[in-house]
Design a protein around this nucleic acid. Sequence first.
DNA 1: AGCTCTAGTATCCGAGGGATACCTGAGCTA
DNA 2: TAGCTCAGGTATCCCTCGGATACTAGAGCT
Lengths: 134, 134
Amino acid sequence: MKPRHEHRSEDCRAVSDILQRVGDKWTVLVVGKLGDGRLRFNELRMAVGGISQKMLTTTLRGLERDGFVTRTVYPTIPPRVDYELTDLGYELLEPVNRLGEWARKNTGRVNAARARFDAGVAGMSVRAGVGSRE
Amino acid sequence: MKPRHEHRSEDCRAVSDILQRVGDKWTVLVVGKLGDGRLRFNELRMAVGGISQKMLTTTLRGLERDGFVTRTVYPTIPPRVDYELTDLGYELLEPVNRLGEWARKNTGRVNAARARFDAGVAGMSVRAGVGSRE
DNA sequence: AGCTCTAGTATCCGAGGGATACCTGAGCTA
DNA sequence: TAGCTCAGGTATCCCTCGGATACTAGAGCT
């Protein structure tokens, strides 16, 4: 049962670091949308849906900083800015999509577990009597 | 402009949902540690390092709720509580570890991109002249 | 003159993350 | 017998960060 792979702390930190970048509320959505091709700021905003300008800007700046997207400014009036995934961005998209597949397959199980837990199973796995937590 | 893979919004939401669960500051670290086998509360606390009791409790409750870990209480004095990944937890571990491998391989590239960005390359990718933002 | 269009920045507010202090209850210690 | 320790929490406070709203620039159109 036990997947034998190294678990040095630094690795976990790296993973955690990346996942904090990737795992916030909007990044995945944004990267996902950009996975279909370059988009302008407001196109992206519409595509993602429900994201505020500020958060989209913040998210995109972060992704740009980390080398996941390129930002191309056309200094026209009104301005036009295109965002597109870099190679690094596309490479990231792959493991992320894998996690995505997992998520799609297992949301049911997770939701079931949640329902079970919320129904009051919490703390039932006590070893020797004293079944209640209060 | 057509998606190479399906990108229905609901899917992205599901992915985002899971990633918000998995992608917060501590969850990956905790799941990663538990991937090596069951641990007691404070063992886990030490193993992860830098996490407060409250956050570890919160994180573990969330994971328990979603069916990723089991919580086993031995009502001794002082109390003893073991945490262990469920099957679902181990299954989650796999795509997460894949992302982890990606992270390990590419932190260098990400850091390089960050350094480049922080050195002031931001906004350099303007298309037609007007190279500075200022 | 003033409205529009785009991609932002500036500002404010409430929620949530994190540190700290406190609790239980048996056993060891002084 | 007073009090410290252990383990796993909960209760509390504070401060950061996410998110909504309002404002900006600058050319063109009416």
